[in-house]
Write a protein that binds this DNA or RNA. Sequence first.
DNA 1: ACGCTGCCGTAACGTACGGTACGGTACGGC
DNA 2: GCCGTACCGTACCGTACGTTACGGCAGCGT
Lengths: 210, 210
Amino acid sequence: MQPAVEVSDSALTERQKDVLDAALALLVEAGDTLTMTSVARRASCSKESLYKWFGDRDGLLTATVQWQASKVRGVPVDPEAFGLTSLTTGLERFASDWLRVLSGSISVALNRVAVGHAGSDKHDLGAIVLENGPFAMARRLKPLLQLGRDTGLLNFRETDEAFRTFFGLVVRDVQIRLLLGDRFELTEAAIDRDSRRATQQFLALYGARS
Amino acid sequence: MQPAVEVSDSALTERQKDVLDAALALLVEAGDTLTMTSVARRASCSKESLYKWFGDRDGLLTATVQWQASKVRGVPVDPEAFGLTSLTTGLERFASDWLRVLSGSISVALNRVAVGHAGSDKHDLGAIVLENGPFAMARRLKPLLQLGRDTGLLNFRETDEAFRTFFGLVVRDVQIRLLLGDRFELTEAAIDRDSRRATQQFLALYGARS
DNA sequence: ACGCTGCCGTAACGTACGGTACGGTACGGC
DNA sequence: GCCGTACCGTACCGTACGTTACGGCAGCGT
């Protein structure tokens, strides 16, 4: 009788993944106003199956968010032949990847629904997005920062402080403006330019060289 | 027959302001799940009055957001006896004011509901919050930045770029984490420290002196 | 005193949507 | 062929909530 709230990454049928992709598309189109009926129609499945697989509406949303999160993993930074140039390009690549994800319609939609549900939720969507968003970024970037410090290229007290400064220099007001619905054209050229600028500013603040 | 959608700042009775304050309180407590009935009960007014004054639920939310926005105005920066110290303290005061507002429960609640409604709205709440949030901050800060450049204390190409960098250095990941429900203790001491750090970093990047 | 206006409180209406039940179909095991 | 399982499609139920309607009261002009 217990519904399958177990969505630990790959306990998902192909059929179920298709359903979650449909839910994702609807989330992008309609935001939090998507209905169970609309998901069922879009995915050509029955509501009964939705409830059997995901328990309830909240479970479906949670599974959808986790499903998207599981697709984003990766974007590694290789710690080989380390030097100022590889640190620089590593930071730049990181910044541009992050801006690209951040400004994507899927990310905007998921962050919107997570923000909307934050605080009063059983399967706290906010916590999930937080975990797979800013926190995941921190976990992936910190090794690079520490490598930079260990090799004398960077100079900072707390890794977390350095990360958060880099975060601010990269993201600035982009995310909040996108979430609030500002029409924003973040072209590929702008992303490249901003990534380089943020990296240079970060190096100016925390670089051991002057 | 036309409902009074006119909420141009002070076309509001004291009674209506009380009602909007009640709505604000409920928005902080319950988020977007507040019902017309709950607002009426909390404010001890009839639903009939709510609909007469604000048209519909959306109008009530809009009026509430604008009412709060009208209360935040101010926080001027005096452009007298200008020098490096007054520029520094001006930036610091600006940063700490902004962080204080940003981390307040009212701001978090309003940004949550605005983000949730962004995109598919007639009275676009997102646009209103955008206008009274980041954009208002930019309008208030830019004169200070330009004064700094005119007096040779600052050095930048685009005022907007300088502003957005300052924004990033001040806000960093604070806002998105709060919106996503991260339990965050932003003490008075932390705000002061962050304001000074952001200002020093900004001066390091854009100060004409080295 | 009488009517008018503005408002409160509450009951009632309509509907959208989450959740459930059920009939019908395809398929695999035996 | 027959049963069990999984699923689709759809009709259905219950409820919450936006919205409207109405009765009653208090203040005020005449």
